[in-house]
């Protein structure tokens, strides 16, 4: 491509100019879409955000009474904690499994087995989230009741397991790519020094691929934070400060999904739901920013 670039403009065929313009348009459009969505969400919520909403109460009160007739309260603390706790739990389950599977697929298994594995993992990624939610609502619910003697199985644990199952395929495929991207010369050099296969993985591959692995984990986490349908069905959808894996909780996304359909447009409650949208945007932005800084920090070392 560099050689082509250096040619004078007259030598570039017309078709290539067309392709380049279209590809550039595709690139720019994604930026426009993101800003467009942010603008829309912000516009819908801005009226109440700057005129009337008690931001302190919004962020620190666990009392979520958007439809009270006598005393409306819009506190999202329980919802924020719900989102973070279920995501953290999901990552505790998904990261070891996902990275372990990626290491196995990339380093230890035979090429034939690898192909089968990849197909199955892709299949796992193709299951719609509402199906996961239904599995949580029926199968996992009873399993948790039976195993933990819990009064009800629609809990943070249930939602966390569902989210873990949904983010494992993402983590596996990205982490595997990251491991594959480590040059073979690293492996050969390590083996030449007498390292065992495990030492190669632990001492050479993981440090060499850590940027990609971190990206895999963060994308998995982003998937968990943004997931809606499965957590709506599996976590019990209950405004509660989470006290442990067996408490039933509610997340920010599920609240928007459950309530937006039935609010009157332009209503206070409607605007608050959009402010939750802004909050989710901010959370995602901060997570991405931290990821960028961490990766940059690793690079500078």
């Amino acid at each position: 491509m560099n050689i082509l670039r250096k040619k004078s403009a007259a030598n570039v065929p017309f078709s290539e100019t067309v392709i380049e313009t279209l590809i550039r348009l595709c690139g720019v459009s994604s930026i426009i879409f993101v800003f467009g969505i942010f603008f829309f969400v912000f516009r819908e919520g801005a009226g109440f955000l700057f005129g009337g909403l008690d931001l302190g109460q919004f962020l620190t009160s666990p009392e979520w009474y958007p439809t009270s007739l006598s005393n409306k309260r819009y506190g999202t603390l329980a919802l924020i904690l719900g989102t973070f706790s279920v995501t953290a739990l999901a990552m505790c389950i998904a990261v070891p499994f996902g990275l372990g599977a990626a290491i196995f697929v990339s380093e230890f298994c035979s090429p034939k087995l690898r192909e089968t594995f990849k197909v199955i993992i892709e299949l796992l990624a193709a299951i719609p989230s509402v199906v996961w939610g239904f599995i949580g609502l029926t199968l996992m619910n009873q399993l948790i009741i039976a195993v933990f003697k819990a009064p009800i199985g629609l809990t943070m644990l249930n939602g966390g397991i569902m989210l873990a199952l949904m983010s494992v395929p993402i983590i596996v495929s990205i982490a595997e790519d990251a491991l594959k991207a480590v040059p073979d010369s690293y492996r050969e050099a390590a083996e030449a020094l007498g390292a065992t296969r495990w030492q190669v993985v632990y001492r050479v591959l993981l440090p060499a691929a850590k940027n990609g692995l971190l990206a895999a984990v963060l994308l998995g986490a982003a998937r968990s934070i943004g997931e809606t349908m499965a957590v709506l069905m599996a976590t019990g959808h209950s405004v509660n400060i989470p006290l442990g894996p067996l408490s039933w909780i509610r997340t920010l996304t599920a609240t928007i999904a459950a309530e937006l359909g039935e609010v009157a447009r332009g209503d206070e409650h409607y605007q608050v739901l959009f402010i939750i949208g802004i909050l989710l945007f901010t959370i995602t932005f901060v997570v991405n920013l931290i990821a960028d800084l961490v990766i940059k920090g690793i690079r500078q070392e």
């Binding site: 666990p62 009392e63 979520w64 009474y65 009270s68 007739l69 006598s70 005393n71 329980a78 009800i152 629609l154 709506l232 069905m233 019990g236 959808h237 209950s238 405004v239 509660n240 039933w248 509610r250 459950a258």
Partner: peptide
């Protein structure tokens, strides 16, 4: 009635 609310912490199903 119109003045008292539900206690939070119920499972609000869809």
């Amino acid at each position: 009635g119109k003045t008292r609310d539900f206690e939070l912490g119920s499972l609000d199903l869809h």
